[in-house]
Nucleic acid binder design. Structure first.
Lengths: 335, 335
DNA sequence: CTGAAAGCGCTTACAG
DNA sequence: CTGAAAGCGCTTACAG
């Protein structure tokens, strides 16, 4: 049985009030008394019970992190950045994933029962209204990662991906004039895909171009699906100068491998670029031209915002925008 | 202010005892009363306060997961498997990393104050006695992932990597007779490296071979270090038929890329194999021959063991051994 | 089947 | 500077 505050009090010959005071606001207790108490604490290996403390203080020092998925390099980096900052600021981190078919209620149960976490960082990548509804009912300090939920009070961390995507498309158009640029996205309800697609359309329009019916396709962000799809289309694509702009590196890698399997040369016969700048981008051959997304910084910034709000609940809502950056490598040629 | 059990009791015209009963042991309360209480709960959106409950029950339903690092595909898969199983069993998961230079105390503070978590899953990859000491002082249900801490009571999940490593070396020796096999490991204090190296030596001995002074090198498991190191040695290695057995896929990929940068052909002029079968193994060209380690299964199995112990504290210590498996791809030729 | 009451281990006014 | 006491929101014997 772990020692309680009462054991400490007895051993130090003081009341539990005094023990509590040396634990929390050390300055107001006489230094000799304090010393006695501290010795007792050490001797007993006393550590305050989180539950009793939480019951009074109404805070747990636990932050919840809710991601769409815990899989792959992208989320792994976010978790890493968030976790590091969390520890740095003296909190703990509860991690959860919300799968696509969870109904909204689970977003909350994902972060635990009432009171378990002091606040949450949530990444919402789909526009599903269920999640939004359940989020708006959560009466919790909340930071939204890369996405907005209108009508709910929260801080947010977003990435300026339209800019990175636009920069990418401009680079493709400028470095390989006359090339047709196709877009392969995730689901058409995915917020990131929507943003990247918007930028793609915009830049094409700037250049007096308009994507054809077949020029935009929505897959599921996975290597496998992209590989399968590309395997069937890669020869047709290569009939004219073409660049595939995939909305993430995974799919870009799938396309590259499908092209190579069809004995096409990348970038000579088909150019391919990705997005995110995950580990994969540097491991494929040729290396992927992509847009760097500051993944661990996103996690860290979100945690920082959340902690700032916990400290100062009345502060105005803040939105931090992180920049993306075009990274030119080999897969698009024309450097 | 969230509704409390008292609010529910008032609204349903019962005592808090009854509310508590329908929450916990529903059967013993009259069905009409229960209905009234349930309606009140719904109407108020009542959710029990975790702290009050934890204070009485002395459990939080939170499991701690402590990993050496949160980086990369390997740990990401473990987190994923553990998280899924955790939710499946109705628990929450607190994640933390322990960096190499943490002193042992941090292993515990990593999982929180007294009482925060009901038990922990810890992965110990280094032999550092500090971590072991601090672990042995933790009076918590504990599952060790891939590693033992003698003298501490715990359950454990291990992988039979000696077998996978032995199978690998045997395959290399059999499929490319006369090849010299070099071993590139992580730090020489890393438990996985030690296991894999042991198997390597054993199989060599079985074949009447003995590794030379230069045949074993310890790096740090990273792509970059392996790439740099290999860049300086790859030409010398290739002077005679040689296979590099790297203790993880990251380093194997680094060696492959260094070889290719030196215009050597893999596997024709140099063979390279890895370990873990992470995503990388399939993305490098040529694809890596490696040993599959059941990563997400490790996480899931550890959580399962931990929960079993929480349910039945007196059960005997259990050790689950997960098998590894040789996966032959292209980087070692001689299929 | 239900209620009144004790108690879990803390924090924090309130007196002194 | 210190102690006695109330109270945080629950669970669970103990009576009835």
């Amino acid at each position: 049985m772990a020692a309680s505050i009462e054991d400490v009090a007895k051993r130090a010959n003081v009341s539990i009030s005094t023990v509590s005071r040396v634990l929390n606001r050390r300055n107001i207790v006489n230094s000799e008394t304090r010393k006695r108490v501290e010795e007792a604490i050490d001797a007993l290996g006393y550590r305050p019970n989180v539950f009793a403390r939480g019951l009074m203080l109404r805070k747990s020092n636990i932050l919840g992190l809710v991601l769409p998925d815990l899989h792959g390099e992208f989320y792994s980096e976010i978790i890493r950045g968030a976790n590091q900052k969390t520890r740095e600021l003296g909190y703990h981190m509860l991690v959860s994933s919300v799968t696509a078919d969870d109904d909204g209620h689970d977003v909350l149960s994902a972060v635990g029962t009432q009171g378990l976490v002091d606040g949450i960082v949530v990444m919402v990548t789909e526009m599903s209204s269920r999640i939004r509804t359940s989020l708006s009912q959560a009466d919790l300090p909340m930071v939204l990662l890369d996405g907005d939920v209108p009508g709910v009070k929260h801080d947010s961390v977003v990435i300026d991906q339209q800019r990175g995507a636009a920069e990418m498309v401009r680079h493709l158009l400028d470095s390989s004039p006359g090339n047709r640029v196709l877009f392969i996205g995730g689901h058409d309800t995915n917020l990131d895909t929507i943003d990247r697609l918007t930028a793609y359309r915009k830049v094409l329009a700037e250049h007096g171009l308009q994507p054809g019916r077949q020029d935009i396709v929505h897959l599921d962000y996975s290597y496998e699906t992209a590989f399968d799809y590309a395997s069937q289309h890669v020869l047709a694509w290569a009939e004219q100068p073409t660049t595939i702009f995939a909305a993430n590196d995974e799919m870009a890698a799938g396309v590259v491998d499908a092209a190579i399997a069809a004995t096409l040369s990348v970038p000579d016969e088909l150019k391919v670029v990705g997005f995110d700048d995950t580990r994969i981008a540097q491991l494929t051959r040729p290396r992927l031209t992509t847009v760097r997304v500051p993944k661990s910084e996103m996690g860290a910034a979100a945690v920082e915002l959340l902690c700032a709000r916990l400290k100062e609940p009345g502060r105005p809502s803040t939105r931090i925008t992180l920049q993306t950056e075009l990274v030119v490598r080999e897969s698009c040629g024309g450097r």
